Computed example of a mutant assay.
Amino acid sequence: MSKHSSKITSWEQLFASTSDQLRSLGIENSRQRRYLIRKREKFRNGLHGPGGDLEHVVDGVAQLRVVEIPASAPAANANATKDGKDGKSETSAPIVPKTKKVVVNLTPDATEYTHQVSKVLKKYAHMKVQRGNKIMGPFLQPMKGTHGTAATITVQEGMWEDKRGHKVDGGERRQKEVRAKLRLEERRKA
């Protein structure tokens, strides 16, 4: 689509153009017009590809880390006393606050993350914690020495493309016919 960038002069023109208007601008191929319109609508709806919703990106590189944060506030009566059956008071064991592991986006040069209770953590599309503490997602490159708990994602060509499928043996309609011809050709060679 970069070859058509000179035909669209402004963001307003891009977001207001219909398929017929895009054709008059010189985008003749209907598949390319549909692709452009589909990507435009995804952008409007906030459906970005992998890494498209990251906040801290410097020179096309972002850092993701798995961190442990409190799941909820600790109980108010952590060491409260209660009466036992024999009438003696006893103290309960301290309640350890539960934690959960989440993926956070840091600047590429950051080494630590400090959690702010008032800050609502964002869930990033296509990125998740698997196997307890490893970050999994497309286009991630693990950082050395972190055992999968930290990774970087770099902007690269084709990262946000909608990839079309490929036909296997002539596609669904012709698959039996093409495979029969291939078997016949193999028998002739043998």
Rank of each mutant, 00 (worst) to 15 (best):
Tyr35Ser: 13
Val58Gly: 03
Val67Arg: 08
Leu47Arg: 09
Leu64Trp: 06
Leu47Val: 13
Asp53Lys: 06
Lys42Pro: 05
Pro70Lys: 11
Val57Met: 06
Arg33Lys: 01
Ser72Ala: 12
Gly84Cys: 00
Gln32Glu: 15
Ser72Asp: 14
Gly46Thr: 08
Gly46Lys: 01
Gly84Lys: 03
Thr81Leu: 08
His48Thr: 03
Ile37Leu: 12
Gln32Ala: 15
Lys85Thr: 00
Gly46Asp: 07
Gly49Trp: 10
Asp59Cys: 03
Ala75Thr: 08
Ala71Arg: 13
Gly49Ala: 11
Val67Glu: 04
Arg40Ser: 04
Gly51Thr: 03
Lys82Trp: 00
Gly60Val: 11
Ala75Arg: 03
Ala62Gln: 04
Val66Tyr: 06
Val58Asn: 13
Leu36Thr: 13
Arg65Lys: 14
Glu55Asp: 15
Val57Phe: 01
Phe43His: 13
Glu68Asn: 08
His56Val: 15
Glu68Phe: 10
Lys82Met: 01
Asn45His: 10
Arg38Asp: 09
Asp53Pro: 02
His56Tyr: 15
Asn45Glu: 07
Gly52Asp: 00
Lys39Arg: 12
Ala76Gly: 03
Arg44Pro: 12
Leu36Glu: 09
Ala75Trp: 06
Gly84Arg: 01
Asp53Cys: 02
Asn77Lys: 07
Ala78Trp: 00
Ala62Val: 12
Thr81Met: 07
Glu68Val: 15
Ala73Gly: 04
Arg65Val: 08
Gly51Arg: 07
Val67Gln: 08
Arg33Ser: 02
Glu68Trp: 05
Lys39His: 10
Val61Leu: 06
Gly46Arg: 07
Pro50Val: 11
Ser72Leu: 09
Arg34Cys: 06
Gln32Val: 15
Asn45Met: 08
Pro50Ser: 14
Asp53Glu: 11
Val66Asn: 07
Arg33Pro: 03
Ala75Lys: 04
Ala73Ser: 08
Gln63Met: 02
Ile69Arg: 09
Gly52Thr: 04
Pro74Val: 00
Ser72Gly: 14
Glu41Ile: 14
Lys42Gly: 11
Asp53Gln: 02
Glu41Asp: 15
Thr81Ala: 03
Lys39Leu: 10
Asp83Leu: 03
Arg31Val: 08
Ala62Arg: 13
Pro50Met: 09
Ala78Gln: 01
Ala80Gln: 00
Gly84Pro: 00
Gln63His: 03
Ala76Asp: 02
Ser72Phe: 12
Leu36Arg: 11
Pro50Cys: 12
Thr81Ile: 01
Ala71Asn: 05
Gly49Val: 12
Arg40Asn: 07
Val66Cys: 12
Gly51Ile: 06
Gln63Lys: 13
Ala78Arg: 09
Asp59Gly: 00
Ala80Asn: 01
Ser72Tyr: 09
Arg44Glu: 15
Arg33Trp: 02
Lys39Gln: 06
Leu47Phe: 12
Asp83Lys: 05
Asn45Lys: 12
Arg65His: 10
Leu47Thr: 10
Gln32Cys: 14
Gly84Thr: 06
Asp53Tyr: 06
Leu64Asn: 11
Asp83Cys: 05
Ala71Glu: 11
Glu41Gly: 12
Gly51Pro: 05
Asn79Phe: 11
Ala75Leu: 04
Asn77Ala: 03
